[in-house]
Every structure is written in structure tokens, then in C-alpha cells.
């Protein structure tokens, strides 16, 4: 893994994931470790993403490294018409590692081909966001004590949500049972269902968000985005049909945890926040440990 870019969740093997999860546990026990002294990490955010950027920067700071970079394209030379090629060719001279978020799909793969330092993809358009997937895996393992044989419900926008697609691919190595709850317009794409069928993994599709969630070990909520709908009335109707409320958790399993990649809008009612089964804010904290683990693995510091 040393010096290898992390662009897509498929770049790393199952044993790589498990090793990163173990390492993240170490960082959770001891978050401040001076491993990055003298190292510079560039965070190039060609589009803003507050949580992802801050958790990366927090991870670097906790390990004693320094951060350079920009928080959106308007404060970079992109506005002067510089190509991504030139930006990467230059920035890789200034740092030991590049973390990048870019609106175009495939941008991180391209950057990894031309950069002299490793690239961590912090989201390339609707394509991949592997560090989110690893932090989801970490959160699942931490709350369930295992990754194998779990029943996972995915709710909301299953068509465009890249986090659910990457999580589905990653979890498929651990014999899960999936339940997909979404409106018809936002159903899980056929390619992912074919993928599950070839692996013999069970999945069920539902249109209604009802008490079937009593079977769940994990409920993974996602935001239904307005721009996915051509009809605004249809959006309002759909948005309100996929909202998790505290009372819906009444008869659910004791070990159930509710995850959400955040930001949420209204799809998880605030009354859920006090429920011990609500895990999304801790999930966001786990993002720091997992990013510490990823950075140190790639830089070969462990």
C-alpha cells in the first residue's frame, strides 16, 4: 500500500481494508502521534466539502504534519484557466501527499497517473469517495463488533448516491443481506443488483419506509436531493415519505445503529439524535481516525 494512491474502493484488497480498520482503532486510542513531522499534505478542493476537508486537515494536524491547499476552485489558478494537469504537476513538487476533491469524474485517477506523490481521492464527481466508504466500514465494525453476516438497510436516494454504491461494493465481501428502500425514481441501479446476484448476495427492494426496519443491524440513510426531480411537487411528496423519526425505532434491534454520510436535511428527524441508536455524529468523528490510518499507510509510517 505504501506510495499507492487511493482513488477507488476497488484499488485496495479486503486485507488492505481490514488493516486500515485496525490501524484506525490505534488512532482512536491514541489520536495524537507525531508521525508526520516535517511532512506536507496538500488538500486541493476544486469544489467545497467542509466535512471531508476538515477531517483530513484534522487528521494531518493530529499527526504533526502541515497542510497547504485551497478550499474551492475560485481561490486557485483554475480561475486563470490552468488545467488540472498543470496544477497537479506543480503541487506535487510542494508536498508528500495530495488529497483532492474535484467535480469531474475520473479526475483523481488522472491525477494519480501524473503525480509524483500519492493521491487520495476525496470525491470525484458522482464517481468515488473511498475514504467515506472506509469510515462507514469502520463505523459498522465498531458498532456491530464484526462486518460479516449483517443486515443492512439503505434508504433514500439509491440511484445517484455514490456512498451507498461504494458501501454496497465493499460490504459485499462480508456476506451481508441488503434491503433497499427508495422511491421508484431513485431505485438502486441495475448494475449493482447484477453485481449482487452474481455473488449470490440476498437483497430486497421496498417502496415504503415501514416497520420492516426491525430486522436491521444498520440503517444507512441518504439525502433525497431536490435537483434529481423534474417535478417539484413530486420532490416534496417523496422527501417526506423517507424521513426517519424516533418512534419508528421503537421495536428495532438493540444493536441497530443509524448511519448517514451527512449533511442531512430533513431525512432524519432531530428527535432521533438523542436515541442511542443514532450514530451519524460519531460516524463523522470516525472519519478523522480512518483518515489518519489511510494517510499513515500510504506514507508508510506504520
Amino acid at each position: 500500500m505504501k506510495n499507492k494512491s487511493l482513488v477507488s474502493i476497488t484499488d485496495f484488497s479486503k486485507s488492505d481494508y481490514l488493516r486500515i480498520l485496525e490501524l484506525a482503532e490505534d488512532y482512536e486510542r491514541k489520536p495524537v502521534q507525531d508521525l508526520l513531522t516535517g511532512k506536507v499534505v496538500a488538500t486541493l478542493f476544486f469544489e467545497p466539502s467542509t466535512r471531508t476537508r476538515l477531517s483530513f486537515e484534522s487528521a494531518v494536524n493530529k499527526m504533526g504534519g502541515r497542510v497547504i491547499g485551497f478550499t474551492d476552485a475560485s481561490s486557485s489558478s483554475v480561475t486563470k484557466g490552468e488545467t488540472l494537469y498543470d496544477t497537479i504537476k506543480i503541487v506535487c513538487n510542494y508536498c508528500d501527499l495530495i488529497v483532492m476533491r474535484h467535480p469531474l469524474e475520473g479526475s483523481a485517477r488522472f491525477a494519480s497517473e501524473i503525480s509524483s506523490v500519492p493521491i487520495i481521492n476525496a470525491g470525484d464527481g458522482a464517481n468515488q469517495h473511498p475514504t467515506q466508504t472506509l469510515l462507514d466500514l469502520y463505523s459498522i465494525k465498531k458498532t456491530q463488533g464484526k462486518l460479516d453476516n449483517l443486515t443492512i438497510f439503505m434508504v433514500g436516494d439509491l440511484k445517484y448516491g455514490r456512498t451507498v454504491h461504494s458501501l454496497l461494493m465493499a460490504m459485499s465481501q462480508f456476506n451481508p443481506t441488503f434491503h433497499f428502500i427508495s422511491p421508484d425514481e431513485l431505485k438502486m441501479p441495475e448494475e449493482y443488483k447484477i453485481f449482487l446476484r452474481t455473488l449470490g448476495i440476498k437483497y430486497y427492494e421496498h417502496k415504503d419506509f415501514t416497520d420492516i426496519i426491525t430486522e436491521a443491524d444498520i440503517i444507512y440513510m441518504t439525502r433525497v436531493q431536490k435537483e434529481r426531480f423534474s417535478d417539484p411537487i413530486e420532490y416534496e411528496r417523496t422527501k417526506n415519505a423517507y424521513v426517519l423519526k424516533n418512534k419508528m425505532l421503537n421495536n428495532t434491534k438493540e444493536n441497530l445503529r443509524v448511519l448517514h454520510p451527512l449533511p442531512r436535511v430533513n431525512e432524519i428527524d432531530q428527535d432521533v439524535d438523542i436515541n442511542p441508536k443514532a450514530y451519524y455524529f460519531t460516524q463523522a468523528l470516525n472519519g478523522v481516525y480512518i483518515r489518519q490510518a489511510i494517510i499513515s499507510s500510504i506514507l508508510g509510517l506504520n
Binding site: 474535484h102 469531474l104 469524474e105 458522482a126
Partner: peptide
């Protein structure tokens, strides 16, 4: 894919 990087860089 119009959003693919190959359609905006050389």
C-alpha cells in the same frame, strides 16, 4: 460521460 475528466483535459 460529459462529466468525465477525459472530456475536459487533454
Amino acid at each position: 460521460n460529459p462529466k468525465c475528466i477525459t472530456n475536459s483535459e487533454k
